[in-house]
């Protein structure tokens, strides 16, 4: 047993005088207004709405991909990848946001999820790349990357923003962390979807135009979540 685990006898704390009757009456009056408007969405309804938002983003990107003439095998692999990341997205949503605050598991584990999954996504992109150009050549030759990155950012902003809005004011305990997980959901939806829409399989392109946006949305989600997700 370490020293901080040794029990100490309890101290007796006195209860302070209650707030004044005037203050209590004022609070009771203020909190009795518009009571009929209180009921919000249940957790499963919010989760479903988040899936719809991300699903719409992925569906739009898949539609873009189907309009292009890609090889069937390449398209199939990209669709399988998107489906796999869809499952991961759902798991993050259910474990990180859909459970009530205070019952969402350890903060460390959720941070590991928020920061570790973008890294796993980078590894997935590395494994799915068909070629790797030298960085200098990639920077000179891949004129498509900025457009592709912009597309991923736009679609990711729609998915992450939608998810953050759906979970607005729901977490006073860890709003930044929950925001990071909402950002991760949005970023993953966009990056997995763009994998179907974009025909490029060059490693630098995948990392910079597709993968880096996931990490960016985790950071943005953390910053926005601190404001939006706290009541």
């Amino acid at each position: 047993m370490t020293s901080h685990e040794e029990p100490l006898p309890e101290l007796e704390w006195s209860d302070p005088a209650p707030p004044s009757a005037k203050v209590s009456a004022s609070i009771q009056q203020a909190c009795s207004r518009d009571l009929e408007k209180g009921r919000g969405l249940l957790a499963w309804q919010r989760a479903l709405l988040s899936v719809v938002v991300s699903g719409a983003v992925v569906a739009a990107l898949i539609a873009l991909g189907l309009m292009q003439k890609q090889e069937a095998a390449t398209l199939r692999a990209a669709l399988l990848g998107a489906a796999g990341w869809g499952v991961v997205h759902l798991a993050v949503l259910l474990a990180g946001l859909a459970r009530p605050p205070g019952r969402r598991g350890s903060r460390e584990l959720r941070w590991a999820l928020a920061l570790g999954l973008p890294l796993v996504f980078f590894v997935y992109l590395a494994l799915s790349a068909h070629s790797t150009l030298p960085l200098s050549r990639f920077l000179l030759e891949d004129t498509h990357a900025p457009t592709c990155g912009l597309f991923t950012l736009m679609f990711g902003a729609a998915a992450a923003g939608g998810t953050l809005l759906v979970w607005r004011r729901t977490d006073p305990l860890t709003p930044g962390l929950s925001g990071a997980l909402a950002g991760l959901c949005g970023g993953l939806a966009a990056a997995a979807g763009i994998g179907v829409a974009c025909p490029s399989h060059e490693a630098w392109h995948l990392w910079l135009a597709h993968g880096s946006t996931v990490l960016a949305f985790v950071v943005v989600g953390w910053a926005v979540g601190r404001k939006w997700l706290a009541p």
Binding site: I27, R33, A43, R99, P100, T170, P231
Partner: peptide, 16 residues
């Protein structure tokens, strides 16, 4: 309490 009242619709049932 004003914030609680404003955010009560966002209270996720089951949260302590």
């Amino acid at each position: 309490y004003a914030k609680v009242h404003r955010a009560r619709g966002s209270y996720l049932r089951g949260a302590p």
